[in-house]
Design a protein around this nucleic acid. Structure first.
Length: 656
RNA sequence: GCUGCCGUAGCUCAGUGGUAGAGCACUCCCUUGGUAAGGGAGAGGUCGAAAGUUCAAUCCUUUCCGGCAGCACCA
């Protein structure tokens, strides 16, 4: 006999090997009917599994959040069956559940297209309506391979070989169709319900390796209830509305064009926001960093010294004199990183231990030849500005410097409105790397300790994790990940410890004992790429920038031409106070103007007509609100000026 | 880079084997209107580039360039 503990705390004995289904039936037939799976000691299992030992048991119905994964996984199986029944000869591979749904990868000479979706969905509905039970069998390895080989499913045969020897080979049947699968599944296909949808089709490499054949992947999603599916589809539409590429065009911030793949044409308004961010960063750095500027192009030999020519050449641009007659035809590499330049600045002249830590910051523009398929608006470009810095310090100063950087990064994110759901990840030594194991051991030990301190200092508000093998080739790194308003994660900041570059360049300082010593070098970025960070901000705010960032903070719009003189006065007064304002004195109705500036996402409209001119007031309409507030001019401007103070200055003022 | 899809006016998109259209934006005119589109007229395109098929190509074919989705990549 075994003892099962139920969620209400009740404990009952059952014969060993009883199935979850029989336990449920014993309680009530209706429970058995609505249960799709069970949870044994916290792990989801097939309801038909025999229970062999004492456990806590819980029955899941399909509305339980934990069942969502099962619904999606089952839907993936049904998708595969539907595809194979519509296109016999198509090979099935894998079909896992992912964050917002599921996918299934197929091998077929003719790829699928969106036009195939209605037919596939129809077939899926048929299979679900049949409501065949999912039944599990355990097969022998050889048997499994033989069956799949006979069916021409060579990918499945490979999968069987990849299953560790001690694990059973499980086959799930759903009527006639079956699939190799780890499980668990619900009791029958009918439990999937009708709230599913195929989303898109794309290529994907077999087992994620670009040397392998390309498969066709069909993405889908499924929910317990139709309204959940509708809400999800709606959320996707919302995400599309805040796509920074669309907003960048609509708000006239920047553009791209064919002649410059992956490089940004910044328009006046976009550049204004960009410069507001840079100005903010400069203020934050003023106390501790010295800003420098290293050359854009340097002789190839320097990149050989740094190791980039060997390690990073595929991603670099190179340039030489364009003149046919030019004598000097040597190659210059356009910098993909700022670090070598900063090492050279450090190396210029003798450095004393008294100067350390020495912190060089640069808003350096780097160019990287990114794979064409990687480029994506501002998020992934070939030319971008880093808020980069390199810190040269002693071994003893290293941990303290990392913590100092941590404080700077976290407080910066907070100022931009990213305060919760921050994660710091430590990436450790990769397979391809430079430096001795001893120095990696040491660096990782220091950074592991710092990581613990980061978590502790934040009162465990900051989550931490480890990315094994994801470090840079020259050292371990911290990656700072923030979450935007619609729940997407972005890795922005990074702190990297480097014991490679100082050595390659022979950088040293004179220590207190008069001896040469090699400094430790720390690379760090906060926003990462300013372009990308701005892209994130656009999507985070859906284009509704806070006043301190908005390129045009207010538009002064007249009702009729009678207001023109006063409007000029208002604009002059606002500009005098440092506000970025524009005039709209066009011969258009106020409705038209309101609509246009609302679409352009101008935070404030100051409407002036006869009345306002006579009373020396303005009628304020804020973006996103229909309400109008009439205030005396001075008062209105003072409020806007106050609101437009950047968060660091506002914070400093409050502290004072 | 790989797979698939796409490329027509500044933007969003129709369209045809016989060298092009709409709406918005733009310019001008009328209108001076109190908080999300007043009316009229005009201007604007080597139909991504090159080669091929054809009497004839924006349309069919090939290659290249660029973009989108996903994969791989993100040092």
């Amino acid at each position: 006999m075994i003892a099962l503990t139920f969620p209400d705390g009740a404990r009952r004995e059952f014969p060993q090997g009883i199935t979850g289904l029989d336990v449920a039936k014993g309680i009530s037939p209706s429970l058995a009917k609505r249960t799709v799976a069970m949870v044994l000691d916290g792990a989801i299992a097939d309801l038909g599994d025999p229970i062999e030992a004492d456990a806590k048991i819980e029955f899941l119905n399909r509305d339980d959040p934990r069942a969502l994964e099962l619904i999606r996984h089952d839907a993936a199986h049904v998708l595969a069956e539907a595809v194979q029944s519509l296109w016999p000869g198509t090979q099935v591979t894998i079909g896992p559940v992912i964050e917002n749904g599921f996918y299934y990868d197929f091998f077929r000479n003719e790829p699928f297209s969106l036009e195939d979706f209605p037919a596939i969905e129809k077939k899926m509905r048929e299979i679900i309506a049949r409501d065949k039970p999912f039944t599990k069998e355990v097969w022998s390895r050889d048997e499994t391979k033989r069956v799949f080989r006979d069916k021409g499913e060579k990918f499945k045969v490979e999968l069987v070989d990849a299953i560790p020897g001690n694990e059973p080979i499980k086959i799930y049947n759903q009527g006639e169709w079956f699939d190799l699968c780890r499980g668990p599944h619900m009791t029958s296909t009918g439990k999937i319900g009708s709230a599913f949808k195929l989303m898109k089709v794309a290529g994907a490499y077999w087992r994620g390796d670009s040397n392998n054949p390309m498969l066709t992947r069909i993405y889908g999603t499924a929910f317990a209830k139709q309204e959940d599916l509708d809400a999800y589809v709606h959320q996707l539409e919302e995400a599309e509305k805040r796509d920074h590429r669309r907003l960048g065009r609509e708000m006239n911030l920047f553009h791209f064009q064919e002649e410059g793949p992956g490089v940004v044409f910044w328009h006046p308004k976009g550049w204004s926001v960009f410069q507001s961010i840079v100005a903010y960063m400069r203020r934050r750095l003023a106390a501790d960093y010295a800003e420098v500027n290293a050359p854009q192009m340097l002789d190839k030999s320097l990149w050989e010294t740094s190791g980039h020519w060997d390690w990073y050449r595929e991603n670099m641009f190179a340039a030489q004199s364009a003149g046919d007659e030019a004598e000097d035809k040597r190659w210059f590499a356009i910098k993909p990183m700022n670090c070598p330049g900063h090492v050279l600045i450090f190396k210029h002249g003798l450095r004393s231990y008294r100067e350390l830590p020495l912190r060089f910051a640069e808003f350096g523009i780097v160019h990287r030849y990114e794979p064409s398929g990687a480029m994506h608006g501002l998020m992934r470009v070939r030319g971008f500005t880093q808020d980069d810095a390199h810190i040269f310090c002693t071994e003893e100063q290293l941990a303290e410097e990392c913590l100092k950087i941590n404080d700077l990064i976290l407080s910066t994110y907070a100022d931009f409105g990213f305060e919760s759901d921050l994660v710091v990840k430590l990436s450790t030594r990769p397979e391809k790397r430079v430096g001795s194991d001893a120095s990696w051991d040491h660096a990782e030990a220091v950074m592991t300790r710092v990581l613990e301190q980061i978590a502790a200092r934040s009162g465990n508000r900051i989550k931490t994790s480890i990315n094994p093998g994801e470090g840079a080739f020259y050292g371990p790194k911290f990656e700072y990940v923030l979450r935007d308003a619609i729940g997407r994660d972005w890795q922005c900041g990074t702190t990297q410890v480097d014991f490679n570059l100082p050595e390659r360049f022979g950088a040293f300082y004179i220590d207190a004992d008069g001896q040469k010593k090699m400094p430790v070098m720390v690379h760090r970025a906060i926003c990462g790429s300013m372009e990308r960070f701005l892209g994130i901000l656009i999507e985070h705010h859906a284009g509704h920038f806070p006043l301190w960032l908005a390129p045009v903070q207010a538009v002064v719009a007249t009702i009729t031409a009678d207001g023109d003189d006063y409007a000029h006065e208002v604009i002059a007064a606002a500009r005098k106070r440092g506000l970025r304002v524009e005039a709209d004195l066009r011969n258009e109705k106020i409705n038209y103007k309101v609509r246009e500036h609302s679409l352009a996402k101008v935070p404030a409209m100051l409407v002036v007509g006869k009345k306002e001119a006579a009373e020396r007031t303005v009628s304020i309409r804020r973006l996103g609100s229909q309400a109008q507030t009439v205030l005396p001019l001075e008062q209105a401007l003072a409020a806007l000026v106050e609101e437009a103070v950047p968060p660091d200055l506002a914070g400093a003022r409050k502290a004072a």
